[in-house]
Structures are given as structure tokens and as C-alpha cells.
Design a protein around this nucleic acid. Structure first.
Lengths: 142, 142
DNA sequence: TGCCGAAGTTCATGCCGTGAACTAACTTCG
DNA sequence: CGAAGTTAGTTCACGGCATGAACTTCGGCA
């Protein structure tokens, strides 16, 4: 009954297209999608593990292991700066910062390619709508 | 320099939001995202492995293993209908068909929730734009 | 016949996420 | 003070997933 076909369906395909391009850009920087997202979230300021887990929408144990792998590569480091000695914050190393910035720039540069065939109006629409949905549905940063 | 902040970035977040909701709906039907997508692609007509791999954007070997797991659950079955005995086509079982249709309906029903806060105009924009990008960037079905 | 290429598969490896059990550190309150 | 409960984070075993490399089978072509 939903007219044309599959709004939901189309959203899934859209996300697959984005996901694929993103993964490609990440591997060009020798990163996985998960590690790349992690890096981008902490690139400007350290965050606690719990906050990070919420931001990325993953369980604490999954995050812990992701951090293990990323730390092993020297891109990120655990710190324990608070009086409460249980809390661990995660920051980037200088190397990680460089990688993060290069990746971020590349994403900004190459990811919008998927929208290259759209009219300028539609590109603006998409940008606006993506921002709305992302900020509305993520416990997120801002 | 790109105004406001991060078009590329926003697209990534958008795709994460969609991906998460989709994964949730899939697990509600006891499926993984990959198996769900596979099922939806073959639910109406059988396809060759090579075509499937192209449609889903994955390597042939990855597909082969995905099919193994999905076939083991009795949702899908390999056939060898052509004179060329190398080609294998993949079709759904009756059980698989039922699951696929229930899932598809649920996706159509619940996935657009993420856009619920948008104005009706924006929802139409999003639907249209998603369709454009998806069909333009997928070797896909149509 | 003999050789090349295409369709699928198999294997080993590594990343990723989950559930369950665990440690260490703080908090509460008698 | 000190025992009970809570919170932050980790560890482990397991399964799904993707990749690269090697392999089998089959068709095409000379």
C-alpha cells in the first residue's frame, strides 16, 4: 500500500551505498570502519569509555575490544585522569590525530560523490535531512 | 571550508542510524543483516551466485559462505537448472519466503520511524533522493 | 586433444559484536 | 568502621562476516 516501492527498503539500500563507500575510504587509510569512527569521535577531545560506548551505540565490552585493537596500532591511548580511579578516558596519539584528520578530510571530499548526480537543490535537501536525522537519533556528541 | 559541518560526516552518521535500526528489526526476525538482505534479493526470483554477489556488492567467496549459513537454516536453497553445469542459482524455500515477507513488511513499517520527526515535505524528499542514489549506485536488480 | 578462462568453493586469518562472568573502585548506610 | 550494593571497565568463548590465496569443475576454442 505504501506508494511507489519500499521507503524502508530504499533507506536500507541508501545506507549500504554509504557504508560501502565509507569502508573503501577507510581501507585506503588502512583503517576499518569501526576504528575510523572511533578515531573521529575522540580526535578532538578525550572521552570516557562509557560516553564513547553511548556515542557509538555499542556495548561496553565491544568497545573495550575495539579500543584494544586500535590502541595496539598506536592510534589511541587510554588514560586515567580523574580522582575516581575507575574511569578511563580515551585520547588520540599524535599519530592517531594525523590519521584522523587525513581520513576526515578524505571523507568530506570523496563521500559526497555518491550524491554527485543529484541536483544542487537535492544535495542541499539531503545535507539538511541527514543532519536532522543524525542529530535526532544519536545520543551523540553535540 | 565546506560550510556548516561535514556533509560526508553526516552521511556516515545517517547510514549508521539506518544500519542500527535495520539490524534491530532483523534480529527481531532472528536474522542477521546480511542474511536478511540476501533473503530479500532472492525472495521473488532465483539468481545466479555471480549476479547475487554483484547485487550485494560482495566477493564471490564471501557470498558462498553467507549462502552456506543461510542454507543451513533452511531459508534458501541452491539449484542447478542450466545446461551449463557450473552455474548455481539460489532460490528461497517456502519457509524462507514467509520470513522474507514478514521481514519486508516490518522494515517498510518500522524503518521509516527514523524519519518520523521530519516534515511531510522532507519525508518525500528523502524518499525520492534515497531512491535516486540507491538505483544510481547499485549494479542492482532493476 | 590441450589450454585458457569462468563459476563456485574451501581454507586460514582477522575484525567485529554478543552474553556471561569477572575485578576493582566508589557509595551507602547501619 | 565495615558489609552490601553499584558502577566502570575488562575478559572469555562463540558465532557471523569479509578477505586473499589456492583449488575444482566445467565450458569454449583452437
Amino acid at each position: 500500500m505504501t506508494e511507489s516501492q519500499g521507503f524502508g527498503d530504499m533507506l536500507v539500500w541508501l545506507s549500504l551505498v554509504i557504508q560501502r563507500r565509507y569502508a573503501q575510504i577507510c581501507t585506503d587509510h588502512d583503517l576499518t570502519s569501526a576504528q575510523a569512527s572511533l578515531l573521529c569521535v575522540v580526535k578532538d577531545r578525550p572521552l570516557r569509555m562509557a560516553e564513547l560506548a553511548a556515542n557509538l551505540g555499542m556495548a561496553k565490552n565491544a568497545l573495550s575490544q575495539l579500543v584494544d585493537r586500535t590502541e595496539r596500532r598506536g592510534l589511541v591511548q587510554r588514560e586515567s585522569p580523574e580522582p575516581d580511579r575507575r574511569v578511563i578516558t580515551l585520547g588520540v596519539t599524535p599519530a592517531g590525530k594525523k590519521v584522523a584528520e587525513a581520513l576526515y578530510a578524505d571523507v568530506a571530499d570523496r563521500l559526497p560523490d555518491i550524491a554527485a548526480d543529484l541536483s544542487p537543490d537535492d544535495q542541499q535537501h539531503l545535507r539538511r535531512i541527514a543532519t536532522l536525522i543524525a542529530t535526532a537519533n544519536l545520543p551523540g556528541p553535540c
